[in-house]
Computed example of a mutant assay.
Amino acid sequence: MAPICRVRLLSDLSGQTVCDREAASLDGRLRAFHSQQYQSLYRGSKKRNTELDKLALPAYLASKKASVVAQDFTDINEEVEQIVVCLPQRCKYNLPDRVIHARKLHHRHFFAVDNDYGHEKYMNTLQNQKYNMVKSLEELGKRAAAVMYEKKQWFCWIKQF
């Protein structure tokens, strides 16, 4: 008896419907169509991971000894500095979100039966990084509000509306 494809169908958003066709790939896990889907998702995931690895912390944060989540940004007093620090952090926050989503989709459909724990461990690492960025952005937002209040710039901003 020929092996059956072990993929959960991408067309089923719940990820519960298993393919019932004969597997035709070299390793006997997937049929040709699902092998193409697997490769496409894999290449997209690797591309996003490469982008994530290339993203470096801003010089301000890289020069600090404490971790990103432990920063309180009290030494930032200029709005320009806040923007320089904030924008790369937002990118670093959004990119892991996209990587996590793609990894979950890939894992749910192609590794639901085999349970590849390396994928799960890496997703947990990315979720921790994302959490740290969220906390860091919250602190940066608090500091930005404090600086704007101290310089009375918040009043000008409100007058625009």
Rank of each mutant, 00 (worst) to 15 (best):
C156R: 14
K92A: 03
K47A: 13
D27Y: 15
N94P: 03
R8I: 02
R108D: 04
E78Q: 14
F161M: 12
L55C: 11
H109Q: 04
R108Q: 11
S14Y: 11
C19F: 05
K65Q: 15
W154H: 15
A70L: 12
Q39P: 03
V134T: 14
K64T: 05
M133V: 06
L41A: 10
L95W: 00
Y93F: 10
Y149V: 04
T74M: 11
Q153C: 08
P96S: 08
Q129H: 15
S40D: 13
V85F: 01
Q153A: 08
S67G: 15
A144G: 06
K151L: 03
R108T: 12
S40M: 06
Y60S: 00
V147E: 01
E79Q: 14
A146M: 06
V113C: 09
S67P: 06
S40K: 13
R98A: 05
G118F: 11
R143Y: 06
Q36Y: 11
V147A: 01
P96N: 10
P96Y: 04
E138I: 04
D12L: 06
Q36H: 14
A59T: 13
D27C: 15
P3T: 08
N132C: 13
A144W: 00
N49H: 13
M123W: 04
H107C: 08
K64P: 02
R143M: 07
K65Y: 11
F155D: 13
K65P: 06
I100C: 04
K130S: 09
V80K: 07
S40I: 08
E79H: 07
R31M: 11
G28I: 09
K135P: 02
S25H: 10
V69T: 07
Q160H: 11
L55Q: 15
D27G: 15
K142F: 07
K159Q: 15
Q37V: 04
E138A: 10
R43G: 06
A70W: 10
P88M: 05
S136Q: 00
L57Q: 07
V113K: 07
E81G: 01
L9A: 11
N128R: 12
E79I: 07
K104D: 06
R31C: 14
D114F: 03
V134W: 14
Q89Y: 03
L137C: 05
L52T: 03
Q127H: 09
N128M: 09
K152G: 02
R108E: 08
K121R: 15
F161N: 13
T17K: 14
K130W: 12
E22G: 09
V99N: 00
L140G: 01
K159A: 10
H34L: 09
N94K: 10
D53Y: 11
F161I: 10
H109D: 02
D12V: 07
R108N: 12
L126Y: 05
L9W: 05
L105S: 04
T50Q: 10
F110R: 00
F73C: 02
N124Y: 08
V69R: 02
S45Q: 08
K130R: 12
K142R: 14
R21V: 06
V18G: 03
A2Q: 13
Q89W: 02
D97T: 06
M123N: 03
L140Q: 03
R143T: 03
N128V: 09
R143S: 02
C86E: 08
M123E: 04
A146I: 05
N49M: 09
D53S: 12
L10G: 04
I4P: 00
F111Y: 07
